[in-house]
Design a protein around this nucleic acid. Structure first.
Lengths: 238, 238
DNA sequence: TAAGTTTATAATGTATACTGTTTTGGGCTC
DNA sequence: GAGCCCAAAACAGTATACATTATAAACTTA
């Protein structure tokens, strides 16, 4: 029951920042099981520090939507179909524009990184390695997002993309979906190479639409949460 | 120098939530001077509680972009022209769509509230009362945003709108600007009354564009922060 | 007098202890 | 055996004490 996730400190800034970074990376890598609970005192003991920095980090992750806090530890939020639809609506509005920006600002090094991530994704798809495909996908996105100069835009996108990441691990295991995703990535990449902002905008629009459709098709277990859903409810708040 | 802002506890949830709510409202009402610093221990003493809930609330506000934390207290962020432009780019992408949704979902009570806020804004503009105009403007926005069912969308908008609120207080003091804003509000309101989603979308697009133009025109003191701006930098982070 | 360096201080960062509340599990009763 | 009630544990919330750090002030020196 006590599946201890491995956390080690990374030397950057104060303890809270280090712990925050570590836990977020753990979540982003899909290394945190959906039902698993994080308890501040346990993590603190594991890292050899006090509760407070851990607690601060966990609360920050809750505020950013990465976790939900219950009276018995912190866990991943369980997204309803409505939640996923809401997230994708925001992504549909933001990501095409951001991609258009990236088409202008990506430098040679960035394009090279993107090419590598694309090849990695294709190789993973061919090998049927869902986890590798998942990582390549994240690397691809993080790279072009890093080239977007409007940091508020890129950070908002990154956050919402991360929120569906947990569910996406399931979707990306599906073979036909992988093919569609790879095709989308390649189209976006080529638009970037040509520095064609309009094409990047359109390709990204398509990409997001496809991703959402795949989600909705492959996720029947999620109920639709009509009205007062309890999926994202914080502790005692409205 | 020690301008003690008045804070009183409001009975809702735990101490952190109460303090958070209070400070955020203080900021949203423009009652916090730009240079003024908030110190957790001072606020704690004023409220008769310990530092920790106050500290948690302040840190949450930092994470949400309402404040910046230095080693000598928390203050309002000083936005550069680039910051404002970035915020408005996100708002341009999100708000028209949100307004279109509101046109569908606003009920009679909501429309009544909007009408009241609109009248209040017109009266304040006629009286030349900048502060009253500012409040009416916020009430108007909060009302229609509350009707948007996609809470992630509405909350993201609310947060970014709040970030420019501090600067907006200056802009809204300008008489010609008030006239333009009132006209925009009226157009949006009428689109809402007609339940015309397309019109609401277009009016909101216009409204945001106007707001941004006014900002850029009336804010020469803000430098453009080319490259490594220090305006939004957190403490020791990248 | 101005610039550089040291010291003092004011604030956050971290640790530990205590309190309150919810959940879970066990035992009692019907 | 099933349901209710009570008790104990497990956790977050809060309080207080101590450590650390960056800024500002003071002091020295060219």
């Amino acid at each position: 029951m006590t599946e201890t996730i491995e956390l080690k400190r990374v030397g950057e800034g104060n303890l809270r920042a280090q712990v925050y970074q570590q836990i977020r990376l753990t979540i982003q890598h899909g290394e945190l099981a959906p039902g698993q609970k994080l308890v501040d005192v346990d993590i603190a003991a594991q890292l050899g520090i006090s509760r407070m920095p851990v607690r601060d980090a966990l609360m920050q992750l809750v505020h950013e939507g990465y976790l939900v806090g219950t009276t018995r530890g912190f866990t991943l939020p369980t997204l309803t179909a409505t939640d996923v639809a809401d997230i994708f609506e925001v992504r549909r509005l933001l990501e095409p524009r951001a991609a258009a920006h990236a088409a202008r600002t990506l430098d040679a090094a960035g394009l090279k990184t993107l090419a590598a991530a694309l090849r990695e994704a294709e190789a993973a798809a061919a090998a049927g390695d869902a986890d590798r495909f998942f990582q390549a996908n994240s690397a691809f996105r993080n790279c072009w997002l890093g080239a977007v100069e409007n940091e508020r835009l890129s950070q908002t996108i990154a956050r919402f993309a991360d929120h569906v990441l947990v569910v996406r691990l399931r979707t990306l295991s599906h073979q036909p979906t992988q093919a569609v995703v790879v095709a989308g990535m390649r189209a976006i990449y080529e638009a970037f190479v040509k520095r064609d902002a309009v094409a990047a905008y359109d390709c990204m629009t398509h990409f997001i639409q496809n991703a959402e459709e795949r989600f909705m098709k492959l996720s029947p277990p999620l109920q639709h949460s009509s009205g007062e859903g309890e999926s994202m409810s914080r502790r005692g708040k409205s």
